[in-house]
């Protein structure tokens, strides 16, 4: 087999030929892809491990103020203490229940409303400026008002999460629905599809990928906003754990809270990616 020549520009400018021999990617594409995936996954694990090891080394050597930047081994021990005392489980459950309740409430309302607004041009024109204006209001800023209206219980915190998720998903859904190609609708009409059939078989599948992207973004925001709310108006939850631990001069517990919050964010994101993968097979 003769070598492949590819660099036509080099040929023209220098008058010489450059030959490129097939590399591992060409010779063993499957093996190369497998090794590449392994390396990428290894790097994804190795980088945080290296950073944590560096932190441990610096804290152990006294370079970091260990009272406020405790070594990861101390944080791990504190994690075990919090688990043994039950405080950790209580905190995670309190935050998760607020996130899940608020998220489901906010996103389900937003998808339903977004489908309607996105499908009716007049509604979209009338409501879009108001929705955009409300979307930019920092939701944590209205927490005192929610507390005033709904009291100090769970309702105000769940509603705060719901409101945060609502606008992100609503805007994405409206945009997704209104962007569905009219040709698809024409095909549906020519096949005699009813309004319901058009919605279920054309609009919904076409709008789903972008709507799900909005839902994934909203899940991250839900975690952020509940932590903020728990800082100021809760006596349980991961946000409260972080804030209270700082106030009590126990930063080890604070780090446990911070790591747990980011883990919840990652897990929720992965779950939603899985849901996306399942619901939109045509989009894989």
């Amino acid at each position: 087999m003769s070598p492949v020549t590819r660099d036509q520009e080099a040929v023209e400018s220098t008058g010489t030929w450059r030959t490129i021999a097939p590399g591992p990617a060409e010779l063993d594409p499957r093996g190369y892809a497998r090794r590449r995936t392994l390396m990428e996954r290894g790097l994804a694990i190795l980088v945080p491990v290296a950073l944590i090891s560096l932190w441990q080394l610096l804290a152990g050597a006294g370079v970091l103020e260990s009272n406020y930047f405790p070594p990861p081994s101390d944080i791990a021990a504190s994690w075990a203490d919090l688990l043994a005392s039950g405080v950790y489980q209580e905190s995670v459950l309190a935050s998760l229940s607020r996130i899940v309740s608020g998220y489901l409430l906010g996103t389900s309302c937003a998808v339903a409303l977004g489908m309607v607004i996105g499908s009716v041009r007049l509604l979209r024109v009338a409501l879009e400026p108001t929705i955009s204006a409300l979307y930019t209001v920092p939701k944590l800023a209205i927490l005192p008002l929610l507390l005033l209206i709904f009291g100090l219980g769970e309702t105000s915190k769940i509603l705060l999460v719901a409101l945060t998720c609502f606008f992100v998903v609503l805007i994405n859904t409206i945009d997704a629905v209104s962007s569905v190609s009219p040709r698809y609708h024409d095909v549906g009409r020519s096949c005699g599809a009813s309004r319901w059939s058009t919605l279920v078989h054309i609009t919904l599948p076409a709008a789903l990928p972008q709507t799900l992207t909005g839902m994934r973004i909203a899940s991250g925001l839900a975690v952020i906003v509940i932590v903020g709310a728990e800082f100021v108006a809760a006596d349980a939850g991961l946000g409260f754990l972080v804030w209270n631990s700082w106030n009590l001069g126990v930063p080890e517990h604070m780090y446990v809270g911070i790591v747990s919050i980011s883990l919840i964010g990652v897990i929720v994101g992965l779950v939603l990616r899985g849901v996306e993968w399942l619901l939109t097979p045509w989009n894989r």
Partner: peptide, 24 residues
Amino acid sequence: ATDKLDAYVGSPSAGMFNQVAKGA
């Protein structure tokens, strides 16, 4: 505790006690 302030005009708290117990 980290020398970012020279003095604090306020009140003692559990946070201070815990830091002192750790050696601050």
